[in-house]
Amino acid sequence: VIAMPSVRKYAREKGVDIRLVQGTGKNGRVLKEDIDAFLAGGA
Rank of each mutant, 00 (worst) to 15 (best):
A40H: 11
A11T: 01
G42D: 12
M4D: 15
L20A: 10
E33H: 12
K9R: 14
V16S: 01
G28P: 02
K26R: 13
E33Q: 14
Y10D: 02
E33V: 13
M4Q: 14
Y10N: 01
K14M: 14
I2R: 07
N27A: 09
L39W: 07
A11C: 06
I35N: 00
L31G: 05
K14I: 06
T24I: 02
I35E: 00
D17G: 03
N27L: 09
G23V: 03
D36C: 05
A40F: 11
G28K: 07
A43Y: 14
R29G: 07
R12K: 15
D17A: 06
L39N: 05
N27F: 12
I35M: 01
K9T: 08
K14W: 08
D17L: 06
A40V: 12
A40S: 12
A37K: 13
Y10I: 03
L39C: 06
F38P: 01
I18F: 04
A40G: 10
R19P: 02
P5K: 15
L39Q: 06
V30H: 02
R19W: 09
I2W: 03
A37R: 14
Y10S: 02
V7Y: 02
D36V: 06
I18R: 01
V16P: 00
G23E: 02
I2K: 08
D34E: 00
I35R: 00
G42I: 15
L31D: 05
L31Q: 08
A37P: 01
V30P: 02
D36F: 04
E33A: 14
K14N: 11
G25L: 03
G15K: 08
S6R: 10
R12E: 15
A11G: 03
K26L: 13
K9Y: 08
V30E: 00
M4K: 15
P5M: 11
R29K: 09
E33T: 13
A3S: 08
D34C: 01
Q22K: 15
Q22S: 13
K32V: 09
I18Q: 01
F38A: 07
N27W: 12
I18E: 02
L31W: 05
Q22D: 08
V21G: 00
G15P: 00
R8K: 11
K14R: 13
K14D: 01
L39H: 06
V1D: 07
T24L: 04
N27C: 10
K32D: 04
K14Y: 07
V30F: 01
L20V: 10
Q22P: 12
D17F: 05
V30N: 00
L20Q: 12
G23S: 04
K9I: 09
L31H: 07
Y10Q: 02
V16E: 00
K14C: 08
V21T: 03
V1I: 13
M4G: 15
S6M: 08
L20R: 12
A3G: 05
Y10E: 02
L20E: 10
G28I: 02
A43S: 13
L20K: 13
D17R: 04
M4E: 15
E13G: 08
P5D: 13
G28S: 06
G41R: 08
A11F: 02
K14F: 07
A40W: 11
P5N: 12
D34L: 00
G41T: 14
D36M: 06
R19I: 07
D36E: 07
A37T: 12
R12S: 14
L31R: 10
R29H: 09
D36G: 03
R19S: 11
S6W: 14
D36H: 04
E33G: 13
V16T: 03
G28H: 07
A37N: 13
I18D: 01
V21S: 01
R8W: 15
N27I: 05
K14E: 04
A3Q: 05
Q22H: 14
G42L: 14
V1W: 04
P5W: 06
P5H: 12
I35W: 00
G42V: 15
D34V: 00
K9L: 11
K32P: 05
D34F: 00
R8V: 15
G42S: 14
G41W: 13
D34T: 01
I35D: 00
K9Q: 12
D36K: 05
A3Y: 04
M4V: 12
D17Y: 05
V16L: 06
V1T: 10
E13K: 13
S6T: 09
A43K: 14
T24K: 06
G15V: 04
G25W: 02
R19Q: 09
A3W: 03
F38D: 02
I18K: 00
R12P: 01
G28Q: 06
E13N: 11
T24N: 05
K9S: 08
L39T: 06
V16Y: 01
A40T: 11
A43C: 09
G41I: 13
E13F: 11
G25K: 03
N27G: 14
D34W: 01
T24D: 02
S6L: 09
D17S: 06
I2N: 11
K32L: 11
I35Q: 00
R8S: 06
T24M: 05
I2G: 06
L31F: 08
V30K: 04
D34G: 00
A11Q: 01
D17N: 09
G15N: 10
R12M: 15
A3I: 09
L39V: 10
I2F: 05
V7M: 04
G23W: 03
A3K: 05
V7C: 04
S6H: 12
S6K: 11
A43E: 13
L31S: 09
K9A: 11
D17K: 05
R12Y: 15
K9H: 09
E13W: 10
K26T: 11
R8T: 07
V21F: 03
K32H: 09
Y10K: 02
K32Q: 08
P5S: 13
S6F: 09
V30A: 03
Q22M: 13
A11I: 01
R19Y: 09
A3H: 06
G28Y: 06
R19H: 09
M4A: 15
K14Q: 11
P5T: 11
A3P: 05
A43G: 14
G25H: 03
V7R: 01
